[in-house]
């Protein structure tokens, strides 16, 4: 049983068959994603508790974020999920050129997302909205009634809590994007060497699972962070 298995390329020595290896890889990735869910879960718990404690602070805080940029990033990320899925499809149907193309497009979309995120972070820093003790100094609404970035005095501290949660959650998400970008570079490199085909493609598939998970996190982050105060904007 183990003898003929030795000759299959891509099969590690301690597995009996390709199927076993693939099943182990997929289940392993899913188990890892479950730990990721619990990891983000702690922050979602923090969000839930503080949102229900400081509802107005969260609305005003959300109002300070740049909704169009957040929306753009949502679309970019969902698009990248599609291209990743198409990459898996190309590998499964043994289309080498398409596989490389889709992986590269996914990587580019990832970089676009991170670029937009950087722009957002910089503007928060510029408006003194980064919530560290030394940097947080938002404009106060009573003093500057027409300032778009102004915060009511009574909510200053609550908005700060919101901004912390915003930076923690999006920062952790962006960290996962950066790890994903590194993973994509590796996959592109392997794909260029022609390692993947319709028999052996589990790295692409498992990498895809990770990528989609990062997308799912953002699907929740976008409405929770960017949209909870959006109606205040329309009132202007």
């Amino acid at each position: 049983m183990s003898e003929h298995a030795e000759h299959v390329p891509g099969l590690a020595h301690h597995f009996v068959s390709m199927e076993q290896q693939k099943e182990a890889g997929t289940v392993g990735m899913w188990v890892f994603l479950v730990t990721e869910l619990m990891f983000f879960g702690g922050l979602f718990l923090v969000y839930t508790i503080f949102r229900s404690t400081y509802p107005l602070g969260f609305e005003y805080g959300s109002f300070l974020l740049n909704m169009p940029l957040g929306l753009t990033n949502t679309i970019v990320l969902i698009l990248s999920s599609l291209t990743m899925a198409m990459g898996v499809h190309s590998a499964q149907t043994n289309k080498q050129g398409a596989l490389q193309m889709y992986l590269i497009v996914t990587l580019l979309l990832c970089l676009v997302f991170l670029g937009i995120k950087t722009v957002e972070y910089r503007s928060k820093l510029h408006d003194h909205l980064f919530p560290a003790y030394t940097t947080y100094n938002p404009a106060i609404k009573e003093a500057e009634p027409n300032n778009h970035h102004a915060v009511p005095q009574a909510l200053k501290s609550e908005v700060r809590t919101f901004l912390w949660i915003y930076f923690l959650m999006t920062g952790l998400h962006a960290f996962h994007m950066i790890v994903g970008a590194g993973m994509l570079v590796g996959l592109i490199w392997m794909a260029r060497k022609g390692k993947f085909n319709d028999v052996y493609n589990s790295p692409i598939e498992i990498g895809g699972l990770y990528w989609h998970f990062v997308d799912i996190v953002w699907i929740f982050l976008f409405p929770l962070l960017y949209l909870s105060g959006y109606h205040l904007n329309v009132g202007h």
Binding site: G41, A132, S157, E158, T161, W164, I165, L168
Partner: peptide, 28 residues
């Protein structure tokens, strides 16, 4: 993973005073 994120938040709390756990800053 939950303890990981908790001690990470505690480390941030201590270095940057993020106010998640500190009642003085609105935390719990």
């Amino acid at each position: 993973p939950v303890i990981a994120i908790t001690v990470l938040a505690l480390a941030f709390e201590r270095t940057l005073q993020i106010g998640i756990f500190d009642p003085k800053l609105g935390g719990d």
